[in-house]
Design a protein around this nucleic acid. Structure first.
Lengths: 231, 231
DNA sequence: ACAGAACGTTGACCTATCTCAAACTCATGC
DNA sequence: GCATGAGTTTGAGATAGGTCAACGTTCTGT
């Protein structure tokens, strides 16, 4: 196992207030793990035994209905803690995490959580912030699902994706991981067919450009307008 | 201002591990406040300056869309902490709280939060648990909104209501606060018309009995079946 | 006791979106 | 380099549930 470098963590919010020595301690207790696309990192309903930090790649956090339909609760981008169910005093994961692209994460056993939050200033605080953001986002999702038409929801979802995990390419911003029509439909509570039709229409209107598993937003302005943005 | 009695808090989870003396301290810093039905307790987007414990009554936690539509995120029943945005390091409330019935709450200034969580064992932990439950519930809502038909969502919403705030009456369980068709539609992302039609149909089928602002579930079994319950 | 408002019901119609179906296009592994 | 399957596109038809409209019922305040 190669020694991990302190610079991996020093810039990240949960660790930014810590000394080199402290970061070293934290790293020495971590294991680095690599996940292939579509690999399951943890399973909904399973005992919470680890918590994670995503170093590289992207994850989908997914719930599966009794009928086997999936819905994507949120995406995780590099630098974020995830699987932080321990903060909430939960002992099972509320959703599954699946690698959307080749991903690299640090992993700690859950028994270290308590110590980390007590010993390292900012660590607990940052996790709560993360949680607060996610909660807010979920509330927004609920509001959208309850009140907005499909086209708006899809537009809003795409905007959120390029916001959180966009990569500038010539002619626009690309979603930085493989994403299918099906995936997008699972984020917005619709069908892949409807998503396909919308993307086709928007491609004709030069708002997006898409190919198999790839989406580039070329005109965020117009997309924003389509999302019914209130600002 | 009348002196508050320790027994108000001693049975409640956030305080159950505390001594009489500690509970006294906490109470002495609290203000009791009464709210008429439809009174706004705090406003979405406003500066977080207090946190609350509901002693009696029921609240709706509500978000308003730019278009002015409301959606009900959750209900608060007696004994629950609410307005606990400080846990999440937020400085604005993510939603508004509105009294559904005549309600009574204890109120503390937000600056006491830190001290409470550090001084009183179990206080912080319980708030996290509450949060964890709400997060889980929200995820369930999202899943439902994204995948279930309206009748199932309404059935599930009614079941949740009688679960969390049901009162046994002869012939069934009644939702213990005034609730309109409009309210139910705001919980489920539909219209008051559709809710009215569903309730009418279910009344004919002897599953519910309802009157103006009142709903009694007479056959939870059948409602459960309608909700597409997976257990 | 009455007027007005708030809440609820019901019908007719319309349309956004889902379902079903078929065909097309890549990418991958053998 | 070809076959297979995963991902995507597009059409036609069906329908759940929203919209519009009108009316009924119960509560509230004066």
């Amino acid at each position: 196992m190669t020694q991990l470098d302190e610079s991996l963590l020093s810039g990240l919010p949960p660790f930014s207030q810590l000394s080199q020595v402290q970061i070293r301690e934290i790293l020495d207790q971590a294991t680095a793990k690599r996940y292939a696309p579509e690999a399951v990192i943890f399973h909904e309903g399973f005992e919470v035994d680890r918590f994670y930090l995503l170093l590289d790649g992207y994850l989908r956090v997914v719930r599966t209905t009794p009928e086997g339909e999936q819905i994507i609760a949120l995406h995780i981008s590099p630098g974020q803690l995830f699987g932080i169910a321990p903060v909430l005093q939960r002992n099972t994961y509320p959703a599954s995490a699946i690698a959307a692209s080749e991903s690299l994460a640090l992993v700690w056993p859950v028994r270290l959580w308590e110590g980390f939050s007590q010993t390292y200033p900012g660590f607990a605080t940052e996790s709560y912030k993360t949680l607060g953001k996610r909660l807010g986002e979920m509330q927004t999702r609920i509001t959208e699902l309850a009140t907005q038409a499909v086209d708006r929801r899809v537009a809003a979802a795409l905007l959120r994706l390029i916001e959180q995990s966009g990569r500038a390419v010539e002619g626009g911003v690309e979603i930085d991981f493989p994403i299918t029509r099906q995936n997008i439909s699972e984020m917005t509570g619709t069908t892949l067919h409807t998503v396909s039709r919308l993307l086709s229409a928007w491609e004709k209107a030069a708002i997006v450009k898409s190919a198999r598993k790839r989406v580039v937003v070329t005109d965020p302005q117009r997309l924003q307008a389509l999302s019914g943005a209130a600002r």
